[in-house]
Every structure is written in C-alpha cells, then in structure tokens.
Amino acid sequence: MSGFLESLVGFAFWVQVLRISVPYVLAALGGATSERSGVIDLALEGKLLVGAFATAWVADLSQSPWLGALAGAAAGALVALLYGLLVLRWRANQIVVGVAINLLAFGLTRYLLKLAYGSTSSSPPTPGFEGGLAGNPLFWACAALVVVWQPLFSRTRFGLRLRAAGEHPQAAASVGVVVGRVRWAAVTLSGVLAGLGGAWLALDNHGFTAEMSGGRGYIALAAVIMGKWRPAAAALACLLFGFAETCQLHLQAADLGLPTEVIRSLPYLLTMVALAGFIGRSRAPAALGVPEDV
C-alpha cells in the first residue's frame, strides 16, 4: 500500500493519468458536441476503434505519426458520416444505429486487421510521436481543444444554434436555423474528435490491437453525462476516470489482493448515480434523440 501512496505523489503517476485521459477527453468533447445538438452519440466506441485502426495502418505505411493521426481523424469523420446518413437523413433510431455501428467497427477492424497483417490480434509495431507527453503534438492539441470548446458552445454563432437545435429544434427552425445542417456539423465534429482519440490510442501504444478501444467510448459518453453535457466539465470527469484507471493499474502492480475491480467499477457507478440525479440535476438536452421534424 505504501508503494502505491508513494507513486501517487510521483510526477510519473500524473503524467500517466494525463496520457490515459487524452482519448477519453477527445471522445467526450465529440460526444458533448453531438449530444448538445440533439443527436445521441453511442457510436463513440466505434469511432475510436476505426480511428485507431486507420491511424495504425497509415502510420505503418507512411512511417509518419502525423499522417496517421490525420487518417484517424478522417476515419472517425467517415464513420460519423455513415451515422449521420442513417440517423439524420433516414431518421433511423439513434440508439440502435449507435450500437450497430460499434458492432460494425468491431468486426470491420478485426477483418481488416486480418486482411492487412494476417493477424487476429494486433498490427506490427508502428511509429508514434517521440519525446514524451510534453513533446506530443496530439496532447497539446487536446489541451487546446479543452480550452476552446466551452467558449465554442457559449460564445459563437455555431454554439448558440447547436444548443437551440438540441433543446427545441422547432423553435430554432421557426427563426430560420436549419437544424439538420447544425446537427450534421455536430455529428461530423464528433467523428473527427473521436477519430483523433483513436489516433492517440494507436500512436501511444505503437500499433493497433483488436478491441483496443475497450469500452472507452462508452466511458467517454458517461463522462459527458457526469459533466452535464458541458465540455469542460466532461473533460474534468474524464480526468477523474483516467485517475481511477491509473490507480487501478498501480494497485494491480502492487498486488494487494484487494479487488481492483472495485476501482475499475467506479466510473460506471458514478455515472449511474449522476444519472439518477444525486449529483445535482443532470438534465439531458430536451430534444436528445428526437429526429428533426417540424
């Protein structure tokens, strides 16, 4: 136990917290954007996974982490496009499609993994950004996004229309806001951000592993709810979850016999408690999941 406490005050521990949190934060910013516009974002998991695969594949081919990250963002956007086509254009059920997209991403990445590398489990090592956290451009990009995203919601034309579209699309439409266009933009943004989150996973691990998103998309969505659909608060919730995960890793290493599952369960439990209204009133955008129909 003392070993664990020592590591808590160490610099390396907190660097690890940040590293673990980055994909959560990126996905959560995307999730908050999509959900505030009124579109449920269960597909975060799939976007992370596809983003990670595309990153590893392109980084391997080009030997450039930059191109890899770019490919990750593009792949995330592509998945978002498919999602938008199904739920915005054809108005299919957002929950069903979200879950199905995740299944699709799961199967497709494994299929492509086999196709590209003949492996069922992982890609060969691929390049990543060198020079630690401080030298990682993706980390700084993520940090900048956290700073910028809240004012994007509250201080820009796009943000105002985004909030209106998610709360009362009919009212927004009645003053000439094209709700569909706002939602398309939000969904695409979410794809790019989650794709970048996937890129982080692949670059940080120097390769792609099957199912490497490991539920992070769902946790990011949980963080969005914990943060009451506000980007900065959601990012904070991600840090909390990242902290819990880091603790779990260290406790596991310390082998205390204490079930680390307890700590691992913390984010899930916290989310359920928040959703039940015990941590202040957590109110979803009023038109969340409601297709636009005036």
């Binding site: 199904l86 059920n93 499609v97 299944l103 199967g107 299929y111 086999k114």
Partner: peptide
Amino acid sequence: PKELVDVLQAVIILAVAASSAALDR
C-alpha cells in the same frame, strides 16, 4: 476471416433500422 460475420450482422441491423424508419415515414 470469420469476422466477416460480425460485419454482416451489423450491416443487417443498420439496414433494418434505416429501411423501417424510411418506410414508416
């Protein structure tokens, strides 16, 4: 690869969801 089946299952869900919504409308 047997993962093909996972892809097909997902495609079926997506197609059912989209086509039934479109037909409902």
